[in-house]
């Protein structure tokens, strides 16, 4: 297992993404950050913290559970039903989806369906800490912490303090290689 991002790298990446979000949207008005469980949720909250520190305005965040929108139902054991917690309306807002790793794109496809069931945002953007490639759907991220070229057999693991006790991004070889 090889560490590819230190805690300070993650902090810097989030700070840069926050600046890009502000720049891309000319401020933070009408912005809603939705974290995708599990690790997208704390990352969204951290981004919101950075945005507030820069702009002096609290940006609403929420949790977007995508388990019920996945296209692989029936291929795996039944997942537990998480809860979606979005306290503000997404109607006509700019929704930024936040996740830890962008890989096949299938989770984001589920998330797009999940968001549009909550209302009709003006636009939806995507922020991820890692883009490891190997897309199976025509989906790309608007904000990327680090592009990380990987082989299919490799595994990328993101750890965050809130759920794992410490921060870090690791890459490991898959079985059979």
């Amino acid at each position: 297992m090889r560490q590819v991002m230190e805690p300070s790298d993650i902090t810097r990446a989030l700070r840069r993404i926050a600046h890009e979000i502000i720049e891309g949207n000319k401020g933070v008005d009408d912005l809603v950050l939705l974290g995708i469980p599990t690790r997208g949720v704390p990352l969204a909250e951290r981004l919101a913290g950075v945005l507030e520190a820069i702009e002096g305005v609290a940006v609403p965040t929420g949790i977007l559970d995508v388990a019920l929108y996945r296209d692989d139902v029936g291929r795996n054991p039944t997942p537990n039903v998480g809860s979606t917690e979005v306290s503000t309306s997404v109607e006509d807002k700019t929704v930024v989806l936040v996740d830890d790793v962008l890989y096949t794109g299938r989770t984001i496809r589920s998330a797009l369906d999940a968001v549009t069931d909550l209302g009709r945002p003006a636009r939806i953007q995507l922020a991820v800490l890692i883009d490891r490639g190997h897309r199976e759907l025509p989906i790309r991220a608007d904000y990327v912490g680090r592009n990380l070229p990987t082989a299919l057999a490799q595994r990328v693991t993101v750890r965050v303090v809130e759920t794992d006790g410490d921060d870090g991004v690791f890459i490991e070889q898959g079985e059979g290689f």
Binding site: D65, Y69, R70, V81, S83, E85, D117, L118
Partner: peptide, 24 residues
């Protein structure tokens, strides 16, 4: 665990579009 899931589905039923594609 069934009751926990049901809590989650109550939230779904409370949405503007109270329907999910889980068992398409």
């Amino acid at each position: 665990s069934l009751l926990d899931d049901a809590d989650g589905f109550l939230e779904v039923l409370d949405r503007p579009i109270p329907k999910v594609p889980a068992l398409r």
